[in-house]
């Protein structure tokens, strides 16, 4: 059984008398342990799709089924990594990571073990008493990821988790992310605008067209960690770029939808 099923999902926004279709009859499933990336031009509704899966916004029609339950609100089975990390600035690194475990009533001894395990995994040992304010962008990003993973969620949803860092740092963090996911065997859906990042991390890449439909669903079955100079890697990246180039740019007015 797939971890997530998206069935006939549509989303329209109404602004006065104008309606704007952001997502149009989307169907896909995500299997256990799979890393799926969603790419597409800005305004294609990829972030909206992720927010609907998270339960932050309702669907207009169709449904999302996580495990065997239909989604109708946020829940701890679908952890979310925000673009701006959304670490609680008033909690230390340690308290941020412990928060989901406290909320989900994890046993105190298990909490501590898991905390240390996560900190080691993300190379954050010794930083647990710092406030997010004191952390670099890369460290915040890692805290956000391990906070989301703390309770072994069914699904990890990430909205452009590396959007705010430069290319060099990005490559380093991508390697670290991959290592974390391999150790913790998570099922991940990531939204990104970076084709290279999607191919580097994913088992599968879905391309959304400007009209909110799935334009392509491309498997990536290269061995990990991936080699950016590998010819098959380059071929997949080029292929995805071609698909994206063929998508007509959405109108200016539609850009506001995302």
């Amino acid at each position: 059984m797939p971890e997530l099923n998206v069935i006939n999902l549509s989303k329209t926004y109404t602004n006065g008398r104008k309606t704007h279709q952001v997502l149009d009859d989307i169907n896909f499933a995500v299997n256990h342990g799979e890393f799926l990336s969603i790419v597409g031009p800005s305004g294609c509704g990829k972030t909206t799709l992720l927010n609907i899966i998270a339960g932050f916004i309702p669907t207009s029609s169709g449904q999302v089924i996580a495990g065997d339950k239909p989604v109708n609100g946020p829940g701890p089975d679908r952890a979310f990594v925000f673009q701006n990390y959304a670490l609680f600035p008033w909690m230390t690194v340690k308290d941020n990571i412990l928060y989901p475990m406290k909320m989900q009533k994890v046993d105190i001894q298990i909490r501590e073990t898991r905390l240390n395990e996560l900190l080691t995994m993300a190379h954050l040992g010794g930083k647990e008493t710092l406030y997010p304010h004191h952390l670099s962008g890369g460290m915040k990003q890692r805290v956000a990821v391990i906070r989301a993973l703390a309770c072994h969620p069914r699904l990890l949803l990430m909205d452009e988790p590396l959007g705010a860092v430069d290319t060099q740092m990005r490559h380093k963090l991508q390697l670290e992310l991959e290592a974390i996911f391999r150790k913790d065997s998570a099922t991940v859906i990531m939204v990104t605008h970076d084709i290279d990042e999607a191919v580097f991390l994913s088992d599968r890449v879905i391309v959304l067209s400007g009209r909110g439909k799935i334009a392509a669903d491309v498997p990536v079955s290269l061995t990990r960690p991936r080699d950016r100079k590998n010819t098959e890697y380059i071929r997949i990246v080029n292929n995805l770029n071609d698909i994206l180039d063929d998508i007509p740019q959405p109108q200016e007015s539609e850009l506001n939808a995302e």
């Binding site: 998270a54 339960g55 932050f56 609100g73 946020p74 829940g75 701890p76 679908r78 952890a79 979310f80 925000f82 701006n84 959304a86 609680f88 928060y99 989901p100 909320m103 989900q104 906070r147 309770c151």
Partner: peptide, 13 residues
Amino acid sequence: SADYYNAARSMGA
């Protein structure tokens, strides 16, 4: 920020 509410809710708060 609305993100904090969403973050808390998606962690089971």
